[in-house]
Design a binder for these strands. Sequence first.
DNA 1: AAAGAATGTCTCAGTAATGGGACATTCTTT
DNA 2: AAAGAATGTCCCATTACTGAGACATTCTTT
Lengths: 194, 194
Amino acid sequence: MGHSFFCSDNMKDTEQSIIEAAILIFNEDLSAPLEKVAEQAQVTRRTLHRYFKDRNELMKSCKNEIRKACHIAMQNAYNSTEDPIQRLERMFYAGVECGTKDTFLHKLHTLHDHEHQSHDQECSDYDDTFSIWKTHLKFLQKQGLISPMVTIDWVHQLFQGIVAASVTSRNNAAMQLNDVKKLGWFSFSRGIGL
Amino acid sequence: MGHSFFCSDNMKDTEQSIIEAAILIFNEDLSAPLEKVAEQAQVTRRTLHRYFKDRNELMKSCKNEIRKACHIAMQNAYNSTEDPIQRLERMFYAGVECGTKDTFLHKLHTLHDHEHQSHDQECSDYDDTFSIWKTHLKFLQKQGLISPMVTIDWVHQLFQGIVAASVTSRNNAAMQLNDVKKLGWFSFSRGIGL
DNA sequence: AAAGAATGTCTCAGTAATGGGACATTCTTT
DNA sequence: AAAGAATGTCCCATTACTGAGACATTCTTT
């Protein structure tokens, strides 16, 4: 997906690092100047423009990267075990491990001017990513494993909120990934009445 | 704090609505063009500029508004009861009721390039607002009322994460304030091992 | 209805952000 | 060490955003 059909590993690396940088920057400031993204990627703005025609192209790549990463992580977590509770736990960890990507994905789909439409390809991809998750939740609730007082939508919001808290703790308070996962899961599992 | 020492109620209203609009917009997009803020406030960009010299002035006013609102709400919640658990509950509700203001305040202080410094007036104000809160938490933990496995910092992040989830549920899923508060408190109280 | 206050409209100059050409420099590979 | 790839430097045209003057319009108050 570079600017030509054949590209070296170097180019793939640079392209990837720009995307990662953009996800970090845009997550905090959607309209940040591209200079900041380049800076974060330790690259010149000129180089950034060699890989991405404009802001929209870059954003598109970010969204693709995010969807891919989150979707795969969720899928793997789901398939890693048969036990329903452990599945939920692994999926939570997947969210935390996706870190900023997960929080950014969620943010993009809760912008107040974002009209969620399933005929939109982006939205249906988003829905796909979390459909496994939501289906699983309904199953757990039917089994009486999680509290009947919480709605599926609330659990989804709570999930995202606690993942965000975990990511912030990791970045800001320099906590270890494992500690953050443990705390996050403790709070999340209890928070849904498990 | 308008553009003159004496100003009518109209001016205060407009100024206030611009600030509220700015908090909404900037919370989602820090570098959004001021046009968007004006639009949200149902006002011309020209009018916006009559009240605020530039972006920085507007941002300063937003921060003041936010600090004031959150600080007062927290204080009132704290003073509204003697019971330590109920205090915690009321403070949580205060956070949810402050809505975007609370989430924005938290966001501003967790930006990855934001160096938190207590000698900075803004930061110390932020610390003040949550010092009551944190002190109270330490008390609860010493009493053995909340789990010893969660750290104070984690509870703070969790608090903000669940408030954010509540605010999103309210805006996005059009849930009632009371329902959101109930769900939020259910998850938060259990999430800290209460 | 008249006076004054507040906002809107139109305009424009100044500034910042963007996208990309031309060439130099550095890095990779052989 | 030479060739080719990738990036950096410098530059410039275009566009978007900003801040404010001058005047028209609307709203408020009396």
